[in-house]
Each structure stands twice: as C-alpha cells, then as structure tokens.
Amino acid sequence: MLTIAICDDDTNDTLRIAALVKNYMDARKISYQVNTFPSGEELLRIHKNFDLIFLDIGLNGINGILVGKKIRERDHNVKVIYTTSFHQFCKQAVNHVHAFAYLVKPVTKVNTEKQLDDILQYIQEEHEPSETVRFEILEITQQGEVETRIKDFEVKDIFYFEYFNRKIKIKLENKEYFFRDKMKDLAEKMLEHHFEVCHQCFLVNLRHVKKIKGYEAYLNNNDIIPVSQKKSAAFRKKLNQFILSNI
C-alpha cells in the first residue's frame, strides 16, 4: 500500500490534491492511504514514514523547507513533492531538501499525474533486484558481413522487443540491437522478468508502461506501441497486477 501525506494550510489546496490522488489511484486500482496535515508541526509530530509527501512551501509556522529538512533527516527514502505559488522557492526546495519534484499552484491534473507516474516508477525500481538476460546479437562488420556475439542486458534497461523484418529488435532507451528468435519462445523466456505480449509483434517490459490509452501503450521513453484488441483486456489485467505487487 502506498502511504501519502498532504501538508498544506490551505484547505482548498489540500482537497484538490487529495481528489487528484484519489482519482489517479482508483483508476489504476492501486491500494493507498492519504493523511492530511494543516501544518508542518503536526506532520512532524507524527512519527510515521510515508512513501510520498505533498508539502506546501509557504506554511504558517515552520515553513515547508525546514519541515522537509527535518523529515529527510529521519527518512532518506521518502519522496517529497513541493507545492508552491512562488517560483523563486522551487530551486531552493530541490537543492536543500533533494525534493523529488515541485508543483506550482494551482496544481493541475496533468502535472500531478506525471509526477505520480514517475514516483511509481522509482518505487518499483527500488524494490526490484538487478537481473540480466543474455542474447546472441547480430552485428555488421566494416566489411559488410553479419557476425554474432553474446551480450548481456540489464532487464530494467529493456523497454520492449519488436518482431521486425524476420528478426527481433531489442529496444533500449537510446540503442537498438537485433537477434534471431521466435516471439513465442522469447515471451516464455521473459515471462519471469515481467514482460508481456501486448501485440503479436511486441513484447513489452511492464516496468516501463506509463499508461494505456485506447489500443496504445505509452512508455516512459515516450515511445507508443500498439495493443491489439484481442490482447487488450488480459494485458491491462497483467499490468495492474504488476503495479500492485510492486507497491
């Protein structure tokens, strides 16, 4: 379960953030708990570690920068998203408290959901061990000949596999490699590493799926890959199960 705190002395801002969080979590069927605090003093009195804190900088009493410093001293893992109406405080918040991000008020649905997407990605990566897989990739020599060599890949670095021109492409963030295999055999091999078939030509790493809209999957590297109508329901179910198991 994801534990979230909202600390803001403006009731309207607190209610808005809470509603945005609720809609986001409910839509993705993610278990969560939200606690609200009208002051930094009340937040600091609660000796509880949160996964995420929305923290207003301009609090009455102890300001948000000082509150963030005190919280960071006792919990190095908490993700802090600052909220503020004043741009000039944002750099100070990020530098002094190592805030995860900041949102300028009034906070918007788009910006809040983007930060929540990033938060979930970080939490998933923090809880998973390092895994590697090995493939015999194809390379073209300077003489124009095709050679093969063995290469290891970090599972978390692979965004997806694509069947392409009778070969399979390994898509990383900034690089591509090719090897020969059958998609069916590859899917069986990568199942234990949380890869799922979303289309007959695509096998995607669930860690990198940001959202599904219609029959398209949006990934963290801004790639958009197709989700077939036939596989859509099963793929969405697998994605939700993966998210829930890593929170």
Rank of each mutant, 00 (worst) to 15 (best):
N246E: 11
N220Y: 15
F235G: 04
L206N: 05
L219N: 06
K238E: 13
F242K: 02
C198F: 08
F242E: 01
K169P: 00
L206G: 03
R166D: 10
I224D: 00
L172K: 05
K175G: 00
C198N: 12
E192D: 10
Y215F: 15
K210G: 04
V227E: 02
A234P: 02
L203I: 04
F179H: 02
F159D: 01
E192Y: 00
N165Y: 08
V227D: 06
K156Q: 10
K237R: 14
H194F: 13
E173F: 14
P226V: 06
F161I: 05
I212S: 02
R166T: 08
L186S: 06
N240A: 12
K171E: 09
I158W: 08
K231N: 12
F159S: 05
P226S: 04
D223P: 01
F161V: 04
S232H: 12
E216M: 12
H199G: 07
K171N: 08
N220M: 14
M190S: 01
Q241K: 10
K189P: 02
Q229I: 11
Y215W: 03
N222W: 01
I225H: 02
E196P: 05
D185W: 03
C201R: 10
V209Y: 08
F179E: 06
K237E: 15
A234N: 10
K169M: 14
R180M: 11
D157V: 04
H193G: 00
L203P: 02
K238F: 05
D185G: 02
K238V: 03
K189H: 12
K210T: 10
I168N: 04
L186M: 08
L244T: 11
I212E: 07
F159K: 02
L244V: 09
E188A: 15
S232Y: 10
Y163S: 12
L206D: 06
F178T: 05
E162T: 01
N220D: 12
I212R: 01
N220L: 14
F164N: 09
L203E: 04
K231C: 03
E173L: 13
R236H: 04
I170V: 13
E162N: 09
R180C: 11
E196K: 13
M190E: 01
D185C: 05
L186Y: 07
M190Y: 03
V209F: 10
D223W: 00
H199Q: 10
K182R: 14
F202N: 08
A187P: 01
K237T: 13
N246M: 05
M183D: 03
